[in-house]
Design a protein around this nucleic acid. Structure first.
Lengths: 238, 238
DNA sequence: GAGTGGTCTAGACCACGCG
DNA sequence: GCGTGGTCTAGACCACTCG
């Protein structure tokens, strides 16, 4: 871990521990540079990390302050993308039932979304996730074999994301998600145990690795009364 | 506008114009530094901007490449937060009907979400937005007078966001949103012209200025068949 | 081993805010 | 005017990828 990352981590810890209160000013950059025995530029890179997580506010001509709303920032950080299994680990009992598992060629739409040729085979995995033994979400994942391989039904029953990160040693880069509401389908009623008139929260996502290759195109359908999406948006600088 | 921002803007334009194709390598940082007659650090700051918008991929030891999925990145950038009026300006005819406009004291929940005391008055504005003369969304906005003042019903009929940015000269910093699905309420049926069994896409948002003060706590309800939310997530660096 | 991006420095000047 | 963060430099070394 690089120096600016270590400093960011330590400053974050200090804020979370309450050494600096919401709204309170942090030491000036020059003071931090002395304290950590480094240059001001490195301190600024460390502050960039905290700023992007909304933990601090920077005022030119005035100072650097702990964000008055930093407690809600913590919620956001902890809800960053890492798959359902990771998100709830320790908080609830997550179990997964694999309803369908096959390798086939992609449809035109799928090949387009995955940015692959229609001749590259894909996994088509349909899973029901349960939270504390209650139906929670229904997900269809399409993943290209050119990116992910050696996937098995057993792995799909646990966490595909931890398999990718821990076993394949690949790093996830970014995700684009479209969120909408929809009426319940026959599958929703059957698997999510909801009623015909219950709304569904639907998420369509495309997830990329750090090197830019797309590894998942997925549709997830949630019961409307279980869970919601939390999103944090910084306004563009440009 | 600072040098790195200008360079970022020019590089972005070159990518959008197709001077560099998706997947293609950009010139090395040293070459860009010579070309723009600046230092490598400044080039890196410019590349940071494009990287955060998912327009480029950086591979240590290899090079900087145009993101293979950069076209979807463009969608995201253009859907950044700026209020409904701004989002659709030029694309569709947006009109707003103010259903309710009052100044009152906040409830406990509102004062908590806005991070103000219960003695600070707030605007309570309830508006129906129409897109091309069709009902689109129903929004209740709560805004503290300690942050925003001189709001009128006339301003609310146009764009509150442009009033804040252009007239009050304040800069928006970030927004936290919770997105969920819900059943239609009596108001939804009456104003959004939807049916009792139609689902609703609900967004609860807290929007802050650049200095960290929260200026809006709002609930927005969308017709499920009109529009969805697009979200872009970079995975945390730490 | 050659070439790339990532990190870091020490110092300088600029832009902004506030009293 | 003074103190703060923002930008920028020229050069150095490290870490990683790939042939």
């Amino acid at each position: 871990m690089s120096l600016y990352q270590k400093i960011a981590k330590q400053l974050r810890q200090k804020i979370e521990d309450g050494n600096y209160q919401p709204g309170e000013a942090l030491p000036r950059q020059a003071a931090l540079a002395s304290e950590y025995n480094t240059s001001r530029v490195t301190i600024q890179k460390a502050l960039d990390v905290l700023f992007n997580d909304n933990l601090i506010i920077r005022k030119q001509g005035s100072g650097t302050f702990v964000s008055p709303t930093y407690s809600s920032a913590l919620d956001i950080i902890s809800s960053q993308y890492g798959g359902t299994t990771q998100l709830f680990s320790g908080k609830a009992d997550v179990s997964t039932k694999v309803l369908h598992f096959e390798i086939r060629l992609p449809t035109n739409e799928e090949s387009k979304k995955l940015n692959i040729s229609t001749t590259v085979p894909v996994y088509d995995i349909y899973r029901l996730r349960m939270l504390d033994h209650e139906p929670y979400e229904l997900t269809q994942s399409i993943m290209p074999l050119s990116v992910i391989s050696n996937l098995t039904k057993e792995i799909a029953e646990h966490s595909i994301f931890s398999f990718i990160q821990n076993d394949l040693k690949m790093t996830i880069g970014s995700a684009v998600r479209h969120i909408s509401a929809d009426k319940a389908s026959a599958d929703d009623i059957a698997y999510l145990d909801c009623l015909k008139e219950d709304p569904i929260l639907q998420i369509t996502q495309t997830v990329s690795l750090k090197d830019g290759r797309i590894f998942e195109y997925a549709h997830t359908r949630h019961r409307y009364d279980k869970g919601s999406i939390v999103v944090f948006n910084k306004v563009p600088l440009s």
